[in-house]
Amino acid sequence: MRVAAVCGAAVVTVVAGMAPAAGAMGAPDADLAYHGTADMVAGRVDVRFTPHNHGPGAAPESAVRIRWSQPLADRQTLPAGCARAAERVVLCRVGALEADGVGERVGLRVRLRGAPTEVLLEFDTVWSDGAVDENQVDKNQVDENRVDANRGNAQGRVLVLDTGDTYHF
């Protein structure tokens, strides 16, 4: 019970002040994407990525949700700005991103429960304080005259095998 309370408090700290993007009508369009690498050895997964905002608008505050296809081990040491949100979910604050801007690199190491031979990681933006990533808004809410050249990049996936090889996304 204590672990759940600590995890809950950490999630509140990570996302404090952030609002869901899906309801933000009339906000500037921000095109967020995450580029990086991941590798796995004996159930330990190292993930390093850099957030990018391809614009045209700024994203004053944003966070990325990383979903794991395998459950995480109960005890994790995560970097500042990251918190475990569920058995298979980690949230990381990426902060403000100017249009055509690059955020600070995020690096985390997690341990998976057991020793799976593969894990699928899924990345998506879950908050953008007033900015809208067109990829995550209902199509009926998007201005038909705007075209997102990178439709779909806000939701990345990478399959990582337990080989020690580096996989890029």
Rank of each mutant, 00 (worst) to 15 (best):
M1D: 14
M1L: 14
R2W: 15
V3S: 12
A5I: 12
A5C: 08
A9D: 15
A9I: 13
A10L: 13
V12I: 13
T13E: 14
V15D: 10
A16G: 09
G17N: 05
M18W: 07
A19Q: 12
A21W: 00
G23D: 12
M25S: 15
G26A: 10
A27I: 04
D29M: 14
D29K: 12
D29C: 12
A30F: 03
A33V: 07
H35S: 13
T37I: 09
D39I: 10
M40F: 03
A42L: 10
G43E: 06
G43T: 06
R44N: 08
V47N: 03
R48K: 15
F49W: 04
F49C: 00
F49I: 00
P51E: 00
G55C: 04
P56G: 07
A58V: 12
P60V: 02
E61V: 11
A63H: 09
A63M: 12
I66H: 01
R67D: 14
Q70Y: 04
L72S: 01
L72R: 04
A73I: 05
D74C: 10
T77G: 13
T77P: 09
G81A: 02
A83Q: 06
R84E: 06
R84M: 06
A85P: 05
A85T: 04
A86L: 01
E87K: 11
L91T: 03
L91H: 05
C92P: 00
C92G: 00
C92M: 00
R93G: 03
G95T: 03
A96Y: 01
L97C: 00
E98C: 03
E98V: 02
G101A: 06
V102N: 01
G107Q: 09
L108E: 00
L108K: 05
V110S: 02
G114K: 11
A115D: 12
L120K: 08
E122V: 13
E122C: 03
F123H: 00
T125L: 08
V126K: 07
D129P: 08
A131G: 06
V132R: 07
V132N: 06
D133C: 10
E134V: 15
E134Q: 14
N135H: 12
V137P: 02
D138L: 11
D138T: 08
D138P: 02
K139S: 14
N140E: 14
D143H: 10
E144A: 12
R146L: 13
D148G: 11
A149N: 08
R151W: 15
N153V: 15
G156Y: 04
V158W: 04
L159I: 12
L161F: 10
D162V: 05
D165S: 10
D165N: 11
T166N: 04
